[in-house]
């Protein structure tokens, strides 16, 4: 094949899991193509996460990390999976469920196609927890707390327990906690490091709230994709499929571990809540998912995928290599690259 250089943007700073994933992707692409395809990494000073769709459409980049939840009006159907956030427990299972869901969901594929983009897989965070300045051990402790919410499902969870969800840019959590404008945030424990919450938070309550999994790690510009030979598309897909679980590995496991260490070092108390709160939280997550499923067929499709991949991941473990091989068999082997995304 002719040698091809692609411009790819992770859209985030050095410490962000997206950058970790894109660096691996660059290596895998060279390996898979035998050196005929390569990736130039474009930094966040050129393209940030919020600019990825514009940059893809104007062909400033060929591949980018797209977060559909940022662009709610463009991806209403794809984002149905995001409305199911509360059921997220196993990071890899959520990531692969998301991948299989989008690949086979016609309205989702249409949304990507309308924006001139091609979807090549997703990743997921660790389950969110409560990071607060007052201790939360029981459901009563949640009454009246002002909690930053990263999305509608988390807001519903907070309201269910009598807390007030607050809309706040993620970068303002630090100041908000520091100054008491919020009492806590429903976030990944990784925010302890990436937004320095270790300096201001005082408690972590390990109540699993759900995951962030509506991602499109390697979103390819449609004309770039269409202009490639089928072999080259297969090569690109193999590299992306290998890199996809590295995001989850970083975001769901490596960084949370580092954050937990920092939390321990900072003397922040990690609370295991009482059984009643855990049970009530899980019950609410289940009933919330039920109400979504009854309202929308796609939510049911996604829930089925989560169930399928939860079984697989429980059996297979968290090894990125084994998971990517399984994803190739279960998901991508059934995709016809002569027509997919075109």
């Amino acid at each position: 094949a002719m040698s091809q250089n692609l411009r790819g943007a992770g859209g985030a700073s050095q410490a962000h899991p997206s950058t970790y994933m894109y660096e691996r992707f660059a290596t895998y692409l060279e390996e898979e193509s035998g050196g005929s395809m390569s990736l130039s990494l474009i930094g966040p000073e050129v393209v940030t996460l919020t600019q990825v769709p514009d940059a893809l459409q104007s062909e400033l980049i060929n591949i980018g990390n797209l977060l559909p939840l940022f662009f709610a009006s463009d991806f209403p159907r794809t984002n149905v999976a995001g409305d199911m956030a509360l059921i997220g427990r196993l990071s890899h299972a959520m990531a692969l469920a998301m991948t299989e869901f989008v690949v086979n969901c016609e309205p989702c594929q249409e949304e990507f196609s309308n924006k001139g983009m091609v979807f090549l897989g997703a990743g997921a965070s660790d389950p969110y927890v409560l990071i607060t300045t007052t201790p939360v051990r029981t459901a009563e402790d949640l009454q009246g707390l002002r909690l930053r919410s990263g999305g509608a499902p988390f807001s519903r969870w907070a309201e269910n327990f009598g807390a007030t969800p607050v809309n706040m840019p993620v970068g303002e959590q630090f100041e908000g906690l520091n100054q008491g404008t919020i009492d806590g945030t429903m976030s990944s424990i990784v925010d302890m490091l990436s937004f320095r919450l270790v300096d201001v938070a005082r408690y972590v309550t390990d109540v699993p709230l759900g995951t962030y999994h509506v991602t499109s790690n390697f979103t390819v510009n449609q004309s770039t994709w269409g202009g490639m030979s089928e072999d080259d598309r297969a090569t690109l897909l193999r590299a992306a499929n290998r890199a996809n679980p590295t995001l989850t590995d970083r975001w769901g496991f490596q960084l949370p571990e580092a954050a937990r260490n920092a939390v321990a070092e900072a003397g922040i108390e990690v609370i295991t809540p009482d059984e009643a709160l855990l049970e009530a939280s899980n019950a609410f997550a289940a009933s919330d998912a039920e109400s979504r499923i009854s309202a929308d067929e796609l939510a049911g499709d996604f829930a089925a995928m989560v169930e399928k991949w939860t079984t697989i991941v429980e059996e297979l473990g968290d090894d990125p290599v084994a998971l990517s091989e399984r994803a190739m068999e279960e998901i991508w082997a059934n995709v016809d690259l002569s027509t997919y995304g075109i």
Binding site: Q51, D54, A55, Q57, S58, E59, L60
Partner: peptide, 12 residues
């Protein structure tokens, strides 16, 4: 990079 990316920068 060509015309489209350049116009894209102006637009966005």
């Amino acid at each position: 990079l060509g015309w489209n990316p350049a116009m894209g920068i102006l637009a966005n």
